[in-house]
Design a protein around this nucleic acid. Sequence first.
DNA 1: TTGTAAGCGTTATCAA
DNA 2: TTGATAACGCTTACAA
Lengths: 360, 360
Amino acid sequence: MKPASSPSSSSSAPRAPRRKAGTHTIHDVAALAGVSAITVSRYFNAPEKVSAAARERLKEIVDRLGYVPSQMAGGLASGRGRVVCAVMQNIASSTFADLVNGMTDELEASGLQLLLANAQYSRELEESAIRTFAGWHPSALILTRDDHTPAAEAMLHALDVPVVEAWGLVPGRPFHQVGFPHAQAGVALAEHFLAQGARRIRFVLPAADQDFRARQRAEGYAEAMRAAGLAPDIVRGEAADDFEAGARAIAVHAATARTRRAQALIFANDNMAAGAILEAPVLKLVLPNDGAIAGFGDAPVSRRLRPALTTVRPARYEIGKQAARRVLDLLGGAGAKADGPSQVLVPCELVVRDSSRLAG
Amino acid sequence: MKPASSPSSSSSAPRAPRRKAGTHTIHDVAALAGVSAITVSRYFNAPEKVSAAARERLKEIVDRLGYVPSQMAGGLASGRGRVVCAVMQNIASSTFADLVNGMTDELEASGLQLLLANAQYSRELEESAIRTFAGWHPSALILTRDDHTPAAEAMLHALDVPVVEAWGLVPGRPFHQVGFPHAQAGVALAEHFLAQGARRIRFVLPAADQDFRARQRAEGYAEAMRAAGLAPDIVRGEAADDFEAGARAIAVHAATARTRRAQALIFANDNMAAGAILEAPVLKLVLPNDGAIAGFGDAPVSRRLRPALTTVRPARYEIGKQAARRVLDLLGGAGAKADGPSQVLVPCELVVRDSSRLAG
DNA sequence: TTGTAAGCGTTATCAA
DNA sequence: TTGATAACGCTTACAA
């Protein structure tokens, strides 16, 4: 009656049943605790909705099993991954590293994972990063520029999640912002020298054109110069390496007649300024008498240079932290979109040291 | 006949049917292309298995819709997320930033996303990061230390995915490694001075005890000294800031009688060494005559210092890249676990500059 | 406070 | 080369 090996009688073939058997699932935990899966789910996502007794039992079992909920399954079921995606412009620079540090510190406790991408100052790479991130159903996005490609901007709107633009602060954007207006840093440096009576002030940009914030600072400087009735004098570095570019700029300075050359040099960043200060003795220049110097960024070495470097110190870590804070607030329901995009100013600070003291 | 508002006749209540309606799904694409969902899936994961005709049609539709596959759904269905998780010790430092850069560059093309965590030199934080990562069903893990907690090590084995320990290289580990033996960097620096005839060579550690690689380098130095019949002289910095610690160390040096003080100072990193070199003129020391100096790391500023700093240059970016490469190879099936853990040596290089030239 | 049922969007399996 | 079907492990909606 019963054919020993027939794989099917008509259509009830044994099919392809199971698959993976990797780690423990929520059901393993539930079974051991004598509760249903949803209670375990609530234990993780809303513990206050679970009785103290069940909570205790679950804690013990979860610890014993080393159970960790699957982010994949949870994200799929809920439609939102517990992920915040951030696009940096240059991960290798300490600027962005500090931003990242601030973000991770703030997000850590919330259980949100930070996903990082590096766009290397390219709008196209930023767009492609955003596209990749879209597949992760992020809870929020943090970007570090405000001039996205149209396609990127469209995706940002379609994603329909909080977007925070960190680092710069410009008016008229549809997204939340945390940072400071970079032009203002340029203004502050120019005014620092103007207030000391300088007339010939030069701004030195890096050789590479990619850091658009440096250009914004240069524009601020130019504005301040024009406001003082002076012509801006913006030059570009001559070497890809910032230290080298700074050294060359100061060499040009040394080779120019004292009465014609700039009284003060504003470098786009501290590395360039450091290159100039370190090269000066070789050129028989005594700074700041033979040329006042300022930078931007307050690198760790800046206060150690002789003369110590006057610079602008942006609150990098704090900006990262605030950007993440803003994300958490928005996810928590505060500052609903009805209020429109918010702007959080994290001011930067002019740090005056010896390098910028103008000769009598 | 049709009761306008009756919610149920007996048990056929309308239930709670749908939920989300966010973006496009694989089915939208499939429907538009007139194929089944699995064909769309193949188009992304194994394009060669899809006819050219279908491929072309799908490309057009995917582009038009801006469709991006859900990583959540894919990860859940396949049991492996397209994620490589890396635990760094200090994201803010340029060392780890370079590692990260190398990794992202290498992983980029493979469609794997790098998930980053920061353990700040703490084994406990590393363990907690690994636990968090477990929820992401990573395809592989990259770590930057080799002395994990027992719990962490257990998780690593349970995860059953490729694990690569990057940066250091030590024998006897059960995981793949990419990097160099840090002790050897200490040996190289000690021998550099020994070869010049120095007898009194001091090693200066940072004030904070957290960077265990620095200790490894110190041990290498100590070994070389003992091998030369000399007593190691290891001191610890006196300030949390590395530059400041370096400055203090050279001040102590300056205050010691010439015949008794060290002929050469090896600093645990370039920042400390830079602090010393920048402070020297203030102390009326002329380097390297009044003290030869070496560092570790080859910071960008090191070759700009006067005297230019002798240091050891690790191939940071390359190590990150090779670690990711190793991961990709392992995922691709090469170097199956049967072969046992592999070791990839990415050597570091002694960079000799003026600061280490010993006085006749 | 807890549970049941029904998917979330994709891929593995088997069949054609 | 393509497709039908059944999971993957979790959470939402609703009911008790």
